[in-house]
Design a protein around this nucleic acid. Structure first.
Lengths: 255, 255
DNA sequence: TCGTCAAACTTGTACATACATGTGGTCATC
DNA sequence: GATGACCACATGTATGTACAAGTTTGACGA
């Protein structure tokens, strides 16, 4: 990992607690050290300690409240932004060898619905990628990626069979700051079915993702379809904490 | 809603900003007032202002950074804990009339896999509910709920055709503090298909939920299956912010 | 005109303090 | 033994201050 010059205190405290929980030093149900103890342990003030706690709280690792001691919740998986946006990165963390088999990469004018989803005028050039992704050489997911030309340039210049497009974009200085995902289920169409080696109509977990810059510009619009027995989404929510997700009723005509 | 005696400052600030954003007073891409301006506007100190900002940030509404002004991101849906756990509540917020058609409610000894998922010994009594849920009288979702007896008592004493079990449990003083959801896709089985009026094998969005008390005890284990064209999940993640979700590779034998 | 640099912002981090508010245990009282 | 008042301690909220580390702006000079 990239060595930081001097780690922020709240970051160090959060890292310590996270690690201690993951490694079982604090078991689910156990009480965490009180804020006062942590300030002593890290020779810090209450601010950084509370900031670290807040982080773990929104990660779903702990629960706290007025008067109560902070307790460790059941160990639940959470992943960083980078882990969850990059299939390759995600596989590496799970000790799985990621693979990819590019079907095609093209530059083309955006037809209507794609233009709308990328919020560009009809017919503006886009770069589209269609890949089969593998886990340990086993077909797992098909991904359809679409980029506006300015970002897509980097994709065209990249060997899409060589690994993570996401990592390449980062290396090229593309600023990816936020993503919004919509998850539903869909039956495999003929393309999906052939690549994933399942019958047409097999239920797939569909994740449509849109990625934005910190300025709010749309960078990517993608459609990933997973074999549901190979991958699933998990998320945690805690009462009183802000949530970053929603169950939305799909109205007609929503592509 | 329940009237609060005196609203907390950070809460009031967050509410103001949230409302102003939702109502379009601040458009996506716009800069929010600086912290200094907000402290003046609310006659507050920086603490509450920053706390409110932090809340909106984890909700995915805004983005900020050193030196940069805070900007409004694209309007994205997020829902509170209560909205997302209760189908009835969720429908109400979307101006949809929720309905339910109970198939059965039984008390029975837990068979092996159910006992494991509720973390109780094999054969311990559980209360199970099987309902078809409707939106504006149209079949939308089938839900299978399982409760350990202590909680299930309240369910047995409740007319499950009359509305929200969740609300009833809250009213009975059951402490529901956290949930963990796993989302994947599955084909409709015969029961699902008959109730939802679709062919067997139709792809459904499956949401398996486990609910916990603040002490970490398991209260509920459920399996909801949505018609994917009626509902979908949306979630936002921002780089550098903690995430509460994970994409997990499903290993064999995981029910 | 154009580049440079410094000043004036911005948000992030940290410390010290005070009080609010809820939990849990002690201990005297009934 | 049960009850209830009380106290110690927990986390939540709020204020004030200071500095760190980016971004923007504009004055100034080449």
């Amino acid at each position: 990992m990239t060595q930081q010059r001097t780690r922020q205190q709240h970051d160090e405290i959060a890292h310590y607690l996270r690690t201690a929980i993951r490694e079982g030093y604090f078991q689910p149900g156990d009480e965490l050290p009180s804020e006062a103890e942590l300030t002593r342990k890290f020779t810090s003030s209450r601010g950084p300690v509370r900031q670290a706690m807040s982080t773990l709280r929104t990660e779903g690792l702990i629960s706290s409240g007025r008067g109560r001691r902070t307790v460790v919740l059941d160990n639940v998986p959470t992943q960083s932004f980078d882990d969850i946006i990059s299939f390759s990165q995600w596989c590496h963390n799970a000790d799985i060898v990621p693979g990819q088999c590019t079907q095609w990469v093209i530059r083309r004018p955006a037809e209507k619905s794609l233009a709308a989803s990328l919020r560009i005028p009809d017919g503006d050039p886009v770069v589209s990628v269609f890949r089969l992704r593998l886990m340990d050489d086993v077909p797992t997911m098909v991904e359809r990626l679409n980029y506006p030309l300015e970002v897509g340039r980097h994709v065209l210049a990249f060997d899409t069979d060589s690994g993570s497009i996401y990592q390449e974009l980062i290396d090229q200085g593309v600023d990816i700051s936020r993503t919004s995902r919509t998850i539903d289920a869909i039956g495999a169409n003929e393309d999906d079915a052939a690549l994933l080696e399942v019958p047409v109509g097999t239920p797939l977990l569909r994740v449509r993702r849109r990625a934005f810059t910190s300025a709010g510009e749309l960078i990517e619009s993608s459609d990933d379809r997973y074999l549901p027995w190979k991958a699933s989404f998990t998320m945690n929510s805690t009462r009183g904490n802000p949530s970053s997700m929603a169950l939305t009723s799909t109205h007609l005509g929503d592509v």
